[in-house]
Design a protein around this nucleic acid. Sequence first.
DNA 1: CTGAAAGCGCTTACAG
DNA 2: CTGAAAGCGCTTACAG
Lengths: 334, 334
Amino acid sequence: MAVTMNDVAKAAGVSLKTVSNVLNNYEFIRPATKQRVEDAIAELGYEANLTARSLRSGKTSMLGLVLSDLSAPYYAELASRLMDAATKHGYRVLVEQSAADSGAELNALQGPFRQLTDGLLFTPLSIGADAIAERAGSKPLVMLGEHIVDPRFDLVTMKNEEAAAALTSHLLAGGRRRIAVIGATAEESTGTAGLRLNGYRAALKKAGIPFDPALIAPGEWRRDAGAAAVAGLLEAGVEFDAVFGLNDVLALGAMHELLIRGVRVPQDVAVAGFDDVDEARFASPSLTTVSPGMDEIAERSMALLLDRIAGRETADAGVHVEAEFQLNIRESAP
Amino acid sequence: MAVTMNDVAKAAGVSLKTVSNVLNNYEFIRPATKQRVEDAIAELGYEANLTARSLRSGKTSMLGLVLSDLSAPYYAELASRLMDAATKHGYRVLVEQSAADSGAELNALQGPFRQLTDGLLFTPLSIGADAIAERAGSKPLVMLGEHIVDPRFDLVTMKNEEAAAALTSHLLAGGRRRIAVIGATAEESTGTAGLRLNGYRAALKKAGIPFDPALIAPGEWRRDAGAAAVAGLLEAGVEFDAVFGLNDVLALGAMHELLIRGVRVPQDVAVAGFDDVDEARFASPSLTTVSPGMDEIAERSMALLLDRIAGRETADAGVHVEAEFQLNIRESAP
DNA sequence: CTGAAAGCGCTTACAG
DNA sequence: CTGAAAGCGCTTACAG
């Protein structure tokens, strides 16, 4: 059997409550008593039972993170930072992969996963604001990304439209006129893909260039889908002089397919992405992309969630934060 | 207040025990009783309190995964698969990033992290077998990787030496004679780096080519370090016609640096890696690498851990599993 | 400053 | 097949 608080109390010759006081840093405790308790703890090698503490206090010291797929570099990098941040504040993070499946997203919101955590960082991809509001419960919930922009929820996101517009303008300034977009359908205008596409359209409009739906190719946000989308455009005979992958892996997959087919990057076709994952910098050619402010996103979302949990943030309406972005011009689209 | 088992018992007109029996799929229960309890559960929207269950049963339904850094593609991909596998068996996985720090590794082994989990999948990088044995406690513990090969512990790993030898032989067969290795020191012979280096040396020996320590460049296993290591070799005037990055990101960083400096890959210098992360297939040129059998590793390690937890695996000595590898010959070293 | 007691919501022998 | 009771190891009013 493990050592319990009771054992410590006996060894130190005090009551249970006193041990608890010492453990919880209660102020008004006689130094000598405190010392005796600490000695007993050290001697017995006592470690608090977190489950018991959690049952009694209702706090778990765990935070939930819901995202579609941890093996996607953007999410992997984000999760890694969030975990480091959580550790600094005495929390652990429990990750749930939704695979962008609505059932999985709903489950993460109310099932055991929610119960096990004091608050949630949630990247919704399939379910809507009302479905979330219905099940949100009372525990703090901070949205990540831009599928749900709703005054009811806290939200930490990036400047998708502005950044996509800036990137598109950069491609236009480089003389590109037929910029293919990979990772969206021509009709999309909400969610991450939609917002980035809006930015693209806005930049075209500003430059007086008509929007051509033939240039927009859908695809899951993975490398193989990026490659397949470019292959599709090429085989359909669509002409283009640039490719904007709505995220980096899409752009990287597209670039690979172009190079394999003997299309020169950037001479024949410029390629740009979005995310600035580490891989972008080391691709050949290195990838021009948007750095969406991941550090700021990780930091702000964690701070906001912890503030909600601790009751330091009390705004009734959702707090909305937008991280600053930056354009990283590299070889693939100079 | 949340709905408790007591509420369900009252609503169904049965005792607590009966509700518990239904929840735990106890066999001998009258169908009518079972139905009544299930109706009450559905009507009240009852959800078991996992913390209470855990306090009483001593089981947490969580598994621990300790690795150095979740943002490294190999670990991100592995973690993603392990989580999916765990979910299938009703477990969640709690990840701890050790940053290869011995203090963090020791903490993961016995602190709160251990307490919160029913078993551990552990990639030790800094601490030794004795330190682990001392603190291992009684909960199941499966080692991942090859830092610790010890009869006391269960281990699931890959054929590092064989695979590295096969890859090196492939480079030699392609006419390469001065193969630089990145990610180890010339003296290493244990741990992942050491084993892969051993394989390299064995292949050289077999081909009658002397080992040249000048060709071995150390570096953290990251892209930037791979690039820096190659830059270092080049600037030191070391001649080489191939680079073996001891993992993919190292190789990819190295390849990027070569290309930037106008060295052609594979014409002037062939490049090969180890891991076969998704990125390898889509690099330009695509990366020749070892596929170490990640699917098998994820599957076998999860199965072994769950078998230990459930008591299905009872071997006193550690069970050792080695996944099969495969060579993926691509453009960077045809 | 410190003690004795209740209770968080389950599971599990122990009876019947 | 089902009930009444104890207890997992904490925290937290309530007294003093």
